[in-house]
Design a protein around this nucleic acid. Structure first.
Lengths: 189, 189
DNA sequence: GGATACATGTAATGAGTTACATGATTCC
DNA sequence: GGAATCATGTAACTCATTACATGTATCC
């Protein structure tokens, strides 16, 4: 249902749009929220039209269909937001990698956390950028809460990665120190 | 591949286990990392055995099969961790709800953020608990990085929810103040 | 006339969920 | 003997990804 609700939310907030328009929004803003692509979006819009959650409000050039949210669609959306218990089952590749981090050589683990920090910093910056552009009048009314959510999540992962790298490096340092001591002991014994 | 790598990681770190054992670990610790259940785990172990990433090291009572990671499995696991670029496509119901928050009445939005904060606090506490028990000797060697990751992520969402609730409440307050002023104006005019 | 962007679709495959199904052992 | 737990499996369905497929309008 999430893809469906994301589509209804966009149609509600930004007004009537084509599948093509919606796909572009999914590729930019919504990419930080709920990823999807046209091969999922077009058939879903079709099913939603069948069920009268949206209507084809206009047919334009190049086969363009403009969809609008219906009253039924709006009701469904609101009902879902307040009534449906969110699915909290976690499936996070980042968390899994964290889980598996000690399976590889310490130097490789350090490199992974370094990269993870870098990428999450970039993603956070990307979102801050989108937010800055929105604030300049171009503002969609409902973006703020989601952007803040995304920024905080990316920042948290970045901070985790920095913490993990430091921990890995201090462990390596201890190992080096220990092996240096062993060397001294064996050469002096 | 993620389910497969989670299974290889568990077999590598905790030693030979049955599908049943692995399923229990998925239901507890790994639930905060990569959710899965027996109906996915059993067939996957079968496919992994076919491909010699694991071997059936023992057959016990009640049809119990104990799987062990093979050298090939270990290589595959390490290769995946360091070489395979993680899929960063986001699909987060929490972020989506944040996105849709302004579609419902302010009071409902406040209630949603209140609940979100509460639940994430509980999830964070749950993980801290698991970590505390691990520290008491029972320690699996590789849990720390993933637990820290999960705790930070839950805490970030909790903090977002608190921030969002405050923002929603101050907006409501402003609306109330404004409507009170309008009332005064109309009654005095 | 050719490149680019607009615009929509479908088919095959893979991953994940829910429900169904069965049987063995242990504890009381 | 009955309940609980151990233990493994499969089938139907939904959701998501990748690749294939086609055609139009605009800009240069």
């Amino acid at each position: 249902m999430s893809l469906r609700m994301a589509l209804l939310g966009l149609l509600s907030a930004s007004g009537p749009s084509s599948g093509y328009d919606l796909t572009k929004t999914f590729a930019t803003t919504l990419n930080h929220v709920w990823h999807s692509t046209h091969s999922q979006i077009y058939p879903e819009l079709g099913r939603m039209a069948e069920q009268q959650l949206v209507s084809v409000s206009e047919q334009g050039a190049r086969g363009r269909k403009t969809y609008a949210i219906t009253e039924r669609g709006r009701e469904e959306l609101k009902r879902w937001i307040v009534e449906v218990e969110p699915d909290r089952r976690v499936r996070s590749v980042e968390a899994l990698r964290a889980f598996l981090l000690t399976e590889v050589e310490p130097e490789q683990a350090v490199e992974i956390t370094r990269k993870e920090s870098e990428i999450n910093q970039q993603l956070s910056a990307q979102l801050r950028d989108i937010r800055a552009r929105y604030s300049d009048g171009d503002r969609e009314p409902f973006g703020d809460f989601a952007m803040e959510f995304g920024i905080r999540r990316y920042d948290a992962v970045q901070q985790w990665a920095d913490w993990a790298r430091k921990r890995l490096e201090s462990e390596s340092a201890q190992r080096v120190t220990r092996s240096a001591k062993n060397k001294n002991r064996s050469s002096s014994g």
